[in-house]
Amino acid sequence: MKKDYLSYKSNKKPFSIWDLVVLGVVILLVVVLLLVLFLPKDAPNYINVYREGKLVKKVKIQDINNSIVFETNGIRVLMESDGVTVIASDCDDHACEKIGKITKKGEAIVCVPKTITVSLS
């Protein structure tokens, strides 16, 4: 609205002292998120593949000798003893392939167009 516009127009400074509040909240949020998500860094025990929220494949990592290739809904997953990679996808953006290999407990590869999630637990 014009009132808001004019107040920004008349104020020539690019920052305001109140921005520190926003900055503080952001830093707090990131620290909390990092603590919650990445504090437990044990070696993973299982590779889980979900499709539309349902578990379709669960592999115990200790049981993998060389590697296992699992395919569901156009997504090819390479399971190895040290981690898991999405190696092929027939969707358009191939974002899940670019993530690379995940190796830690709690990490995940998410492919939204295919509703596939690969996670380590």
Partner: peptide, 22 residues
């Protein structure tokens, strides 16, 4: 993404995404 995939895993990306988005 979490709703569509039916899992909480997408939240794993949130720390990097928050920093990048800021």
């Amino acid at each position: 993404a979490s709703i569509l995939t039916g899992s909480s895993s997408p939240f794993v990306y949130l720390p990097h995404l928050t920093i990048f988005s800021a």
